[in-house]
Simulated assay, not measured.
Amino acid sequence: MTQLARLAGGPAARAAVLSLLLATGACTGDLGRPRQDIFSQVLAPQAGFWSATARGEAASHFRFTDDEEQLRDRAWRLVMPSHEKSIFQRRVSDLAHARILPAQMQSSAKSDYFNALTGGSFASQASRYARLAEDANADRLLIGPFRANAMRVVAADRVRMRTAESSPEVAPSQIDPAQARVVENEGLILWVCERVGFRIESYRYALANLVVEMPSREAIRAERAIMALEAEAGPLCKMPLIGVFGGEGRAPAGEGDKAPVVYKG
């Protein structure tokens, strides 16, 4: 026990220890999300704060507003892998959502969804096209509410920073955590935009390979669903932000690197 305490002495080490506990002790609740227990409510947020701080990312100790809590709940579904059979990647994404792992550890292989979609047994190719269309449509229905939620958070952050910078009643010690929270919120929006784009790429990859392997007229319905998702994602990835990462839901024109992903889940 003494040795474990020594190992958990630093922020990164404490996060690693708690990550192991989370990986082995988390239980599944509704919609595949971690059940609301001591791990998801206490240990995961604290481990995420330690991990993000150790990586040099912005991390605020401020309590979340209702809209910020809801934004993180809505983001969870969009940053997770599209298919429930991607079990390992779902766990990685879950830990990234809690900030225990960096978001960059998520898979960027477009083939993951196709492999999960066609990995099991199925009676007809029509079911694969139907599932693809259903997944794209389900994502599309989530984007509008997330964008509306994000706009409320961004508006509140503008008020937050105007007050923090202009009011003599605000203690200097409040400025840094306020700025960190703005970075967290904007980083989360950018991350969701990035992962929605990745979903669209994954769906297009799956559709093309389904058509090559099992041609079907059902491909038309799936393609229309993907196009509708793409149209819905456009406004999200162009919404005006405060600008800590460039001002939009994508990197500014002329910059080759993606906007960094830092946030507090």
Rank of each mutant, 00 (worst) to 15 (best):
R152Q: 12
A171C: 06
A156K: 02
P172I: 07
I175E: 04
S166V: 02
V170S: 05
R162A: 13
T163Y: 00
V153A: 01
E169N: 14
R162W: 06
R162Y: 08
E169S: 13
R147P: 03
Q174S: 11
I175L: 15
V154M: 07
E169P: 01
A150F: 04
A136C: 11
I175Q: 08
L141V: 12
A138Y: 11
E134V: 11
A164K: 00
M161V: 14
V154P: 02
A138H: 12
P145S: 06
I143G: 00
Q174H: 09
L141W: 08
R158Q: 09
N137R: 14
A148S: 10
A164L: 15
V170A: 07
E169Q: 13
I175R: 09
A150E: 01
A155S: 14
E134A: 14
D176R: 14
A138D: 13
A164G: 08
S167D: 14
R162G: 08
N149P: 03
R140P: 02
V153Q: 02
V153R: 03
D139G: 08
R152K: 15
L142A: 15
S166C: 10
A156R: 02
F146A: 00
A155H: 08
L142G: 09
R162T: 06
F146P: 04
A155F: 07
E169T: 13
P145C: 06
A148G: 04
E169L: 14
D139I: 10
Q174I: 05
S167V: 07
S173F: 02
D139L: 15
G144H: 10
R160H: 06
A171N: 06
M151E: 15
M161S: 09
M161Q: 09
P145E: 00
I143S: 03
N149L: 11
R160C: 05
T163S: 09
R152G: 05
N137A: 15
M151P: 01
Q174F: 07
R140D: 10
S166M: 11
M161Y: 04
P172N: 06
N137T: 15
M151Q: 15
D139F: 14
